[in-house]
Amino acid sequence: MSERHAIPLLSNLETAPQPGELPITIEAFHVALQAEREKVLAELRPTLEREITEHVTVQIERTVAAQVEAHRQALEASFDQRVAAGVAQKVQEILEQWRLSRHRMFGPSSESHQGELFNEVEALADQAAGTEDEHEGEPAPVQDKARPKRGHRRALPPELPRVQIEIDVPEEERQCACGTPMVRIGEDVSEQLDIIPMQVRVIRTVRPRYACPKGDQAPVQQPAPAQILPRSNFSAGFLAMMAVVKYVDGLPLARFEKVMARHHVDIPRQSMARAMIKLAQALQPLHNLARDTLLEAPVIYMDETTVQVLKEPGRSPTAKSYMWVQRG
């Protein structure tokens, strides 16, 4: 108990009975002491409550500040990681775009070499300067199937069909000056590679029908031959040619349309495109068999190419699609 609160208590004790008076009872002293205690507590309660409130407030502020600081540091660390990952990805995209732009500007491409189609002959001839042409020079012996010696052109493939043109000496010139008929003692043979330009023709299939004049029996007729695309006026040879030209030679259907127009045949590229799709559907069983054989191989080579597919169900026209070429 503080000193200033002890004074009132002492003052009460000073009023204790003097000698000759009746002493204060213990109960009365206890009641007085309890009253004094309550009085002191009432005076100290505001101070204690204020100090306790201040102490608790300081502790709460420190705890909250520590938690906020820890949460802030965690957020900063997570944000820094996301920013670093985003920056790394953006830098990678910029580098890829830079490499792609340099490749488009300075690297070889099919479009950049289109201008060289006009001087291709001169360019290839310059590259081959100083070397001997296998299709020029002295003809190699026809009977010799081995590789010709240096200075002789390569023999043409023996499996190609031959059309023989014989240029003989007129009979009146095969008479010796002495009057003796000349005899054949040998011949010189030379071969040239020839090609027949594309022939466009129409296959006309006629199926006669026969019936009894009396009408006692139904007419008879041979069934139509099987076709890859029923009810199509494209033959199997034309479909094969179109598929090879587009997917092997890399010629677009628009250019093949011009090739056909040069032969006075008007076939829209849209019709050829629809026929190509139907042809792929008809050949799907063969594709499945070829793929099953491919998957049985111990090693499969693959090439990934990005393409843009238009009007694809459920996807945007700008979405990136992939085409995988597989080879065993």
Rank of each mutant, 00 (worst) to 15 (best):
S2L: 09
A6G: 06
I7R: 09
P8S: 03
S11N: 15
P19M: 05
L22P: 09
E27F: 15
E36R: 02
R37G: 00
V40P: 00
T47K: 03
T47S: 01
L48F: 13
R50F: 07
E51W: 15
I52S: 02
T53F: 07
E54K: 04
T57L: 11
Q59V: 13
V64T: 15
A70T: 13
R72M: 12
A74N: 07
L75N: 02
A77M: 07
S78F: 02
Q81T: 11
R82S: 04
V83H: 12
A84E: 05
A88N: 05
Q89C: 11
K90V: 08
V91I: 14
E93V: 14
I94P: 02
E96S: 10
E96I: 05
E96F: 10
L100F: 07
S101W: 09
M105H: 15
G107P: 05
S109R: 00
S112T: 05
G115W: 05
E116T: 13
E120C: 11
L124Y: 06
L124I: 09
A128H: 14
G130C: 03
T131N: 07
D133C: 13
P139Q: 09
P148H: 02
L156I: 08
P157G: 04
P158R: 10
V163T: 12
Q164H: 08
Q164W: 04
I167C: 04
D168P: 07
E173I: 00
V183K: 14
E187S: 15
L193R: 10
I195S: 12
I196Q: 08
M198G: 08
M198L: 09
V200P: 05
V202S: 03
R204P: 06
R204E: 14
A211P: 04
A211M: 11
K214F: 09
D216V: 08
Q217W: 07
V220M: 11
Q221C: 15
Q222I: 12
P223W: 10
P225K: 04
A226R: 10
I228Y: 01
N233I: 12
F234I: 02
F234L: 11
S235H: 01
S235N: 03
L239W: 00
M242G: 00
M242S: 01
V245L: 15
Y247R: 01
D249I: 00
G250I: 04
G250K: 06
G250L: 06
A254L: 12
A254W: 09
F256D: 01
E257N: 01
M260I: 02
A261T: 09
D266V: 04
P268C: 05
Q270A: 10
I277M: 10
L283W: 00
Q284E: 15
A290D: 04
M302E: 14
E304R: 05
Q308I: 10
V309L: 12
L310Q: 13
E312K: 08
P313A: 00
G314R: 03
S316M: 14
S316D: 13
T318G: 13
A319D: 15
W324I: 15
V325L: 12
R327Q: 12
G328W: 11
